[in-house]
């Protein structure tokens, strides 16, 4: 009895969770007219699908949005790791003055939501004439307290004897970071990459603040603009096709790398 109830609840919850995915996919494959037919799920048609996806890619510069998104996420991730890994190593293994202060600052920084510094950052970026540039999209996030924190936690448990041995072998401190610590810390890197990419690919707030020109829009902002523009009003199929395309990369990557990502996300959440 209790078992049956549990199964029912699980299946129901799974169905509700999947509902928008299924519906989005179904509508993106449906011809304009069939959506209004009054059926629960519109009938799919290949011709309609081709039309919807073509519309989303040509009439709306969806490919450009996705390229922007990939560029922003990629450059950000590289910069974030480049800046955070040495700092994480220094916090974990090197006795320098001000270490406790910096670590305290990292902890405090973890609690500050992005929307707080956004206002002065916007004023500064506008003053420098950098609105509607990649710099505006990327610069505020190149420093990630979460990355520093994750690396620091991971490096602390790295055996100091190995680092001493590397020093005797002639490694520089920076060499130790890049050739010893970061390769050993790939779970932390993977965890952080997961969080960073999910956050910045999906973020709407900051692009809305610094971007107005269509060709600089990121995927969610572009889709939101498409939705509220007149073009989508009569073309739900194309809108859903756009949704499918910007959602697919992360969802597919998740399904593919599931194990690592789930572990990574759990780890990031703990931080």
């Amino acid at each position: 009895m209790a078992r049956a109830l549990g199964w029912t609840l699980l299946c129901l919850a799974a169905a509700v969770t999947l509902l928008p995915f299924v519906y989005m996919l179904a509508v993106s494959f449906a011809a304009q007219g069939t959506i209004y037919s009054g059926a629960l799920l519109p009938a799919p048609s290949l011709a309609a699908a081709r039309e919807n996806y073509a519309f989303a890619l040509t009439e709306v510069p969806l490919a450009r949005f996705m390229l922007n998104g990939a560029l922003v996420c990629g450059v950000l991730l590289v910069l974030q790791v480049t800046i955070a890994a040495p700092a994480g190593y220094a916090l974990a293994k090197l006795p320098f003055r001000g270490r406790p202060v910096l670590f305290g600052a990292v902890i405090v920084a973890l609690m500050i939501p992005m929307q707080v510094p956004a206002i002065p950052l916007y004023v500064a970026i506008a003053w420098m004439g950098l609105l509607d540039t990649y710099t505006a999209l990327i610069a505020p996030f190149v420093i990630s307290a979460l990355a520093i924190f994750l690396f620091r936690q991971f490096f602390v448990n790295y055996p100091s004897e190995v680092i001493d041995a590397a020093r005797l072998d002639g490694f520089s401190e920076l060499g130790i970071v890049w050739r010893l610590m970061v390769p050993a810390a790939w779970p932390a890197v993977a965890a952080f990459a997961t969080i960073s990419i999910i956050n910045h690919w999906n973020d709407l707030y900051w692009p809305l603040v610094v971007v107005t020109r269509t060709e600089m829009m990121t995927p969610p902002m572009g889709l939101a603009a498409f939705r509220s523009s007149g073009e989508s009003a009569g073309n739900v199929g194309a809108l859903m096709a756009g949704g499918v395309m910007i959602t697919a990369p992360l969802v597919l990557a998740f399904l593919f790398f599931q194990r690592a990502l789930v572990r990574g996300f759990g780890m990031g959440a703990r931080a």
Partner: peptide, 22 residues
């Protein structure tokens, strides 16, 4: 677990428009 985690990775803006259609 996979099913329930899907909304976390999915782009909320896209999923919101999907809900709007639903």
């Amino acid at each position: 677990r996979t099913v329930f985690f899907l909304p976390v990775t999915a782009t909320l803006v896209a999923m919101a428009t999907a809900w709007e259609v639903v």
